[in-house]
Amino acid sequence: MLMLFSRFTVIAPVSLSIALFISSCSESKISQCQRLITVVNEGTSLIDTKKGQQVSTSLQLSKDLKNVTKSIQELNLKDPELKEFELSFIKIFDKLSEAIAKASKALGDTKTAEASSDGRIKIEKARKEIDSALTTAAKTAGKESDALGVKLNSYCSQPQ
């Protein structure tokens, strides 16, 4: 009987030590929040600094936003709630990147229009469509991102 009790006293502390070690190795909610917020802020900063530039030069912005999307995907967050935020921000940046890329391509296509009154009309029409599409995409993404940012900040400020 003493042997069984002795074994239990060794197993219990070892099990407790392993559990504490595993939990200490897992990343905290706060550090996961910080990583997600950092990458999201990088994407938002890209948009803020490059907004208002010509659509033809925005192809790089589209690529940069794709990289932000990839960076968010690579965060591998473990917190289930943060994982949902991660997926939502991926969708937002991805949609915006695609809209910018399409607009940039459309503008590039208009450069091959003939130098005639018909060609000018096509170009003007394309520019209006491009501006409209980008404005719509940017406003939608901006509203979604702002609302999601408020929710993320609220969640991250809650105690664990």
Score class of each variant (00 low, 15 high):
residue 2 L to Q: 08
residue 2 L to I: 06
residue 5 F to C: 05
residue 8 F to L: 15
residue 9 T to K: 14
residue 9 T to C: 12
residue 10 V to Y: 10
residue 12 A to E: 03
residue 14 V to F: 07
residue 14 V to R: 04
residue 16 L to V: 13
residue 18 I to N: 02
residue 20 L to T: 07
residue 21 F to Y: 09
residue 22 I to N: 04
residue 22 I to Y: 05
residue 23 S to V: 09
residue 23 S to N: 13
residue 23 S to P: 00
residue 24 S to V: 11
residue 26 S to D: 00
residue 27 E to A: 04
residue 30 I to M: 05
residue 33 C to T: 05
residue 34 Q to G: 01
residue 34 Q to P: 00
residue 35 R to V: 03
residue 36 L to H: 01
residue 36 L to G: 01
residue 38 T to H: 08
residue 38 T to R: 07
residue 40 V to S: 01
residue 40 V to P: 03
residue 40 V to R: 03
residue 42 E to N: 10
residue 43 G to H: 04
residue 45 S to M: 03
residue 46 L to K: 10
residue 47 I to C: 07
residue 48 D to A: 15
residue 49 T to A: 11
residue 50 K to D: 07
residue 50 K to C: 00
residue 51 K to N: 11
residue 51 K to Q: 10
residue 52 G to V: 06
residue 54 Q to D: 15
residue 55 V to Y: 13
residue 56 S to I: 15
residue 56 S to K: 08
residue 58 S to F: 01
residue 59 L to D: 07
residue 60 Q to W: 01
residue 61 L to N: 00
residue 62 S to Q: 02
residue 62 S to M: 01
residue 64 D to F: 02
residue 65 L to H: 03
residue 66 K to S: 08
residue 67 N to S: 14
residue 68 V to Y: 04
residue 69 T to W: 01
residue 70 K to G: 04
residue 74 E to V: 00
residue 75 L to N: 02
residue 76 N to Y: 04
residue 77 L to R: 02
residue 78 K to Y: 00
residue 79 D to V: 09
residue 83 K to F: 09
residue 84 E to T: 10
residue 84 E to K: 13
residue 84 E to S: 12
residue 87 L to D: 08
residue 88 S to Y: 03
residue 89 F to T: 03
residue 94 D to K: 14
residue 96 L to Y: 09
residue 98 E to M: 02
residue 99 A to K: 01
residue 99 A to S: 13
residue 100 I to W: 14
residue 101 A to G: 10
residue 101 A to I: 04
residue 102 K to I: 10
residue 102 K to W: 04
residue 104 S to A: 08
residue 105 K to W: 01
residue 105 K to R: 06
residue 108 G to A: 11
residue 111 K to E: 14
residue 114 E to Q: 11
residue 114 E to H: 08
residue 114 E to G: 10
residue 115 A to G: 09
residue 116 S to L: 06
residue 116 S to E: 06
residue 116 S to Y: 06
residue 116 S to P: 11
residue 119 G to I: 07
residue 121 I to N: 10
residue 122 K to D: 12
residue 122 K to N: 11
residue 123 I to C: 00
residue 123 I to A: 15
residue 124 E to I: 11
residue 129 E to Q: 12
residue 130 I to Y: 04
residue 131 D to L: 05
residue 134 L to W: 14
residue 135 T to P: 00
residue 135 T to N: 14
residue 135 T to A: 06
residue 136 T to W: 00
residue 138 A to K: 11
residue 140 T to L: 12
residue 140 T to S: 14
residue 140 T to I: 12
residue 141 A to M: 11
residue 142 G to Y: 07
residue 142 G to M: 12
residue 144 E to A: 05
residue 145 S to H: 03
residue 145 S to P: 01
residue 147 A to M: 07
residue 149 G to I: 00
residue 149 G to A: 07
residue 150 V to S: 09
residue 150 V to W: 02
residue 151 K to Q: 15
residue 151 K to S: 14
residue 152 L to W: 08
residue 153 N to I: 04
residue 157 S to G: 06
residue 158 Q to R: 12
residue 160 Q to E: 14
residue 160 Q to H: 10
